[in-house]
């Protein structure tokens, strides 16, 4: 007997091809809704650290597309983990797996409904992992998710992680995006 998950999840893969528009590079890989099917998928696909630069994995609840424009994302934001180049070898895969386990195991107590999904961006200049939540105004939910996530990743107190609204990320580039919350 398989162990059912609370939610059905969809894994997406993005491969950068500059000759195509962003959405054309995004592929739905598969959906799953049991613990066993999650592991069958995870054990079968490439580790994030072995992906080519420019690639992303996204895991979202069924029905939510991994983009700002989706109705369930557009008022939301993300807890962002930025990694140095050195961390790819040591921590990228470990952090991403922990992120996935937080999502499928429903790790955020009363606030799991606020979680939309998670994204990992593999980039030469530095990798990023983020958990996306649905509403930047749900302060209690956002903060609880951020604190729990930081604990689960085993990040020390001195490391501060920030939460950014997608609306700000979409209109400002890189360093201009301000944190709405930090934990």
């Amino acid at each position: 007997m398989k162990h059912p998950l609370q939610n059905r999840w969809t894994l997406w893969f993005y491969k950068n091809d500059k000759t195509k528009p962003w959405q054309a590079n995004l592929r739905l890989v598969t959906k799953f809704d049991t613990v066993e099917d999650f592991w069958a998928l995870y054990n079968h696909i490439q580790l994030a650290s072995r992906l080519m630069s420019g690639c992303d994995y996204s895991l979202f609840k069924d029905g939510i597309e991994p983009m700002w424009e989706d109705n369930r994302n557009k008022c939301g934001g993300r807890w962002l983990i930025t990694l140095s180049k050195q961390q790819r070898m040591l921590e990228l895969d470990q952090f991403w797996l922990e992120t996935l386990l937080c999502l499928i195991g429903e790790a955020f107590d009363d606030y799991n409904n606020d979680v939309c999904g998670a994204v990992i961006n593999v980039r030469a200049k530095g990798d990023k992992i983020a958990i996306w939540t649905r509403d930047t105004e749900n302060q209690k939910a956002v903060l609880h998710i951020g604190k729990t996530y930081k604990e689960r990743l085993g990040l020390p107190m001195r490391i501060v992680i920030g939460y950014q609204a997608h609306a700000d990320t979409a209109t400002k580039s890189g360093f201009g995006v301000k944190n709405k919350f930090v934990v």
Partner: peptide, 18 residues
């Protein structure tokens, strides 16, 4: 209703079970 919650330990134990 009740939520189906799995902790890290349980999920990891399922990784290699047949």
């Amino acid at each position: 209703g009740t939520r189906i919650i799995y902790d890290r330990k349980f999920l990891m134990e399922c990784r290699n079970s047949p």
